[in-house]
């Protein structure tokens, strides 16, 4: 059996509040292999965002195991988590999350800065990925000078700059119109099929989920469906 990219066993997550602990994720078990394209759906409050944060090493589970490339994330310190986020994972957010004062190539080169890559190589790689996203002529522009769809492509270029094996996209098309959403999803599909990058995507739009090849549905902190994307619509209607 090939080593999975992600192996999750008996994962629990609860938040401590003034009113006592609030369970958010309940006994999650999930494996994701390299090269998969997974869509995660579920109503708000179902725990899918918390799950994504744990997948992205931005948060750690209360109990249970999360192995990323065989490494138990729960045992790692802040620096090791930062380095996993830097080297293994690329993030794409709903709100793009670009640095507003930095130009596009600086934004894209940022993960490489924290990976201690030299200046000239950093900028060269940043320009390469911007070009790949069709934004080669905007290298010196500021995020505010380009459209939302373009900003999301910059965010994808930034996610790619660290040469990740996993891209986590949290509602990446949530702020975009249908046509632009389709373009962005085509990019994800291409990265998945041509570059073999594993993609995990949270969405509440069935149309977007259909780009994936596997659907995981969360309800009340549990996985209620794991398999075909064909039922995406039924779930949305339920």
């Amino acid at each position: 059996m090939p080593a999975g990219l992600i192996q999750i066993r008996h994962l629990y997550k609860q938040y401590e509040t003034a009113a006592g602990p609030v369970p958010v994720l309940h006994d999650i078990a999930l494996d994701i292999d390299p090269g998969e394209f997974v869509a995660i759906m579920g109503p708000s409050g179902s725990g899918k965002s918390t799950f994504m944060n744990i997948l992205g090493c931005l948060d750690i589970p209360t109990s249970g195991q999360y192995l990323l490339r065989g490494k138990d994330v729960g045992t790692l310190d802040h620096d090791a988590l930062a380095s996993l986020r830097n080297q293994v994972i690329g993030f794409v957010f709903q709100g793009f999350n670009l640095l507003p004062r930095a130009n596009l190539e600086t934004n894209v080169a940022l993960p490489l800065l924290y990976a201690r890559v030299g200046r000239s190589e950093r900028l060269e790689r940043a320009r390469h990925y911007l070009q790949q996203m069709g934004l080669g002529k905007y290298c010196k522009s500021l995020p505010s000078q380009i459209s939302g769809g373009q900003q999301q492509r910059v965010a994808i270029a930034r996610a790619l700059a660290g040469n990740p094996s996993l891209i986590l996209a949290d509602e990446p098309t949530g702020n975009l119109d249908t046509q632009t959403s389709r373009e962005i999803m085509d990019i994800f599909t291409r990265l998945n099929t041509e570059e073999g990058i594993t993609i995990v995507l949270v969405t509440h739009e069935p149309d977007i989920a259909h780009y994936a090849r596997r659907l995981v549905r969360f309800v009340d902190g549990r996985v209620v469906h794991d398999g075909s994307v064909e039922i995406a619509h039924e779930g949305a209607m339920a």
């Binding site: 802040h78 080297q87 999350n97 640095l99 993960p111």
Partner: peptide, 16 residues
Amino acid sequence: TREIGIRMAIGARRRD
């Protein structure tokens, strides 16, 4: 704060 969050998400360590 948000900028700090972005930097941390893409790999900035605490000392950075």
